[in-house]
Write a protein that binds this DNA or RNA. Structure first.
Lengths: 277, 277
DNA sequence: AATGTTAATATCAAGTAGATAATAATAAGG
DNA sequence: CCTTATTATTATCTACTTGATATTAACATT
């Protein structure tokens, strides 16, 4: 039965691609950003919030639940291209920082059929979105609290609705790197997206300390206090200004512009040293 | 044409899973270990080498080229289960540390058809392999040299054969995390496996500094010099013993056994504090 | 008993990070 | 114009971490 081939061309000509079982793949994309909430008090600093973009499903399965933007990949695009396509459809933004997070493959993660999904995370400066968001999509502010060393509590809220869940940080065994997911059923989030959200936030939290990816969420010019707030809201802790400035000093470049009008000493505007323009 | 459903059950009953294009998925697994090369001189310390397991393909495509162990996933197993299955088939080992590396999805990465592959890395203590390896598989010592900040040179050798390639570390844009792969064609390694190998070594290099994964490659009892050599061969640089001992001190536990007979002060045997047994 | 070798510890110096104090520059209100 | 509240920015002190060298210990061989 096994035919012997003498060259790769010959083999490929005969190849029957239905020999192995097939499945569908999707990409899900966790779009993260920081917002500036204007406060009424001129003296009070605006409060930065960390937020992610969710869309409401208007079809089955998980009809009317929230989920990450995503979609099936096409046969002529890579996963990354697929994620970028979804990202652009959702935000109208191109050339966005995007990073592969993890590929989720639980056999029953989708009730329709076997679907493996690769999650990406994207970092954007929310203010660059010119047009309104699509009707069914919405920013949710994130608060992620490490309750114990092994337990996360996550709260997502968009002003009207609140979604919360607990995630167990414990590793399955010591033989793997995956989180165990302890939310038996979340009634507001679709699929395995809670764990995607936490994986992405964790990744950002780590990488913000040893890479420059945070600048993908910043406008071109910013004050060091603003940048510090972004760090604070992502790391979920207060930082001391002198130390923060010391650490960030070699990544940023002072411009000769300042931001005035705040009722206190004006702050110098900085820009990212590594920026292309 | 769009039928309206009133419940998820109803929707799923009607669902046509052929609606979206499908593809095959494989897992590839990068099995890494450190070897102890016995030296003839009783005084000379054995030299540790860092090595990975490759198998020679005996079918098309890439017949007679070396590649990572791997295989198609089944419809009733997760990617991780698939990787573990391949790992066990290759080494007869169970309960091995395994970690998802990256999912590769270039459209033409396999000449047969569209195949997306998720790469895993596994860390083993080579000495635990009781039986011989399969006939077509073989350990290759790795030397990975960072030639410039953006350029890697990798040399794999198994005593008879040498495989080398250059990999460009430059990121595609600043909008992604993927390495650009500069080996137009490698005539000894199949598929995109050169980049998988480098990704895995990089990951290990990083994680060895802030996690305890190195102990997955160690026997139960070891001397601190042996452990230091493992660090040195992975990080590809010499470390100072006093500083190394200081850093590693709280991760290991001294036993009351020693290793004698080397013509110098005997070394205490240690074990990993976090080990289960 | 002398020698060569690695194991293990002690110690010094340089650099990093956490914290507090001091000074600067504005807007608002009198 | 002067005072006040507020944040921006810099200076400085101390504790801790890290890189490096020196010292002592314990063996096997000759």
């Amino acid at each position: 039965m096994e035919k012997k081939y003498s060259s790769e061309e010959e083999f490929l000509k005969d190849y029957d691609s239905s020999m192995f079982e097939k499945l569908s793949m999707t990409t899900d994309i966790l779009i993260m950003s920081v917002s500036t909430e204007e406060s009424e008090n001129y003296r009070k600093l605006e409060e930065k919030k960390f937020s992610i973009l969710l869309v409401k499903r208007d079809d089955y399965p998980y009809k009317d639940k929230w989920c990450l933007p995503g979609g099936f990949i096409k046969m002529d695009e890579t996963l990354e291209e697929s994620a970028n396509r979804v990202l652009e459809a959702e935000t109208n933004l191109k050339n966005i920082y995007i990073e592969q997070l993890y590929t989720f493959s639980d056999v029953d993660r989708d009730p329709r059929m076997r679907i493996v999904s690769t999650a990406y995370m994207a970092l954007i400066d929310k203010n660059k979105i010119k047009d309104d968001l699509k009707e069914n999509s919405c920013w949710f502010n994130v608060s992620l609290v490490e309750e114990t060393e092994k337990k996360y509590k996550v709260v997502l809220e968009n002003g009207k609705e609140e979604i919360s869940f607990i995630l167990n940080k414990k590793l399955k065994e010591q033989t793997t790197d995956r989180y165990e997911f302890s939310v038996a059923k979340n009634d507001k989030l679709a699929f395995d997206h809670p764990i995607v959200i936490v994986s992405g936030i964790e990744r950002l939290k780590n990488k913000i300390e040893y890479t420059d990816i945070v600048f993908n969420m910043m406008p071109k010019y910013f004050t060091l206090s603003e940048l510090q707030q972004v760090y604070e809201v992502i790391l979920n802790k207060k930082l001391l200004a002198p130390d923060f400035r010391r650490i960030i000093a070699n990544k940023v470049e002072k411009t000769d512009q300042v931001r005035k009008g705040k009722g206190h000493r004006p702050s110098a505007l900085f820009k990212y040293k590594g920026s292309k323009d």
